[in-house]
Simulated assay, not measured.
Amino acid sequence: MSFLVYMTVPTQEEARSIGKELVSSRLAACINIFPAVESIYRWENEVQSSHEVVLIAKTSEEKVTALTQRARELHSYDVPCILSLAITGGSPEFLSWIENETR
């Protein structure tokens, strides 16, 4: 089974750095970077907002835990948003590519 791992980071540079590390170490087959999102959230008992960058990693089930751990090590936030979502359908050829690239 393949997974999408959704993350937010403060800058595009950090997104690129994390993305390159995850792909080069074969923890992710591919990273998509969305450079401009606005996040509204509660932190330290206050509603806050900030501009963030979204990363979506495509990986295999076997690599989700290692990818999450490595992303946490590279991340600048104290409590980073790193969420994994199982892919329940899609192009069989693409899903096979994800599995092959993360071996």
Rank of each mutant, 00 (worst) to 15 (best):
V47A: 10
S96D: 14
I40N: 07
I87N: 00
I98F: 03
R72K: 14
V79Y: 11
S24T: 11
Q12T: 13
L22Y: 01
S25Y: 11
A36Y: 10
Q48G: 11
E62Y: 01
A28E: 02
V53D: 05
A15Q: 01
D78M: 03
R26W: 06
V9P: 00
L27A: 01
S50R: 00
R42I: 12
R26A: 10
I18P: 00
S96T: 10
E13T: 13
L67F: 09
R42E: 09
G90H: 15
Y77F: 08
R16E: 15
V54A: 12
E21K: 10
H75P: 15
V37D: 04
K20G: 09
P10A: 08
L74C: 10
E52F: 03
V23S: 02
Q69D: 14
I82Y: 06
T59V: 05
K58A: 08
R42D: 05
I33F: 07
I18V: 07
E14N: 05
Q12R: 12
K58M: 11
I56P: 05
I87D: 01
L83S: 15
V5S: 06
E21T: 15
L55M: 13
L22I: 03
E44I: 08
E73P: 04
V5N: 05
V79D: 10
E101T: 13
V53Q: 03
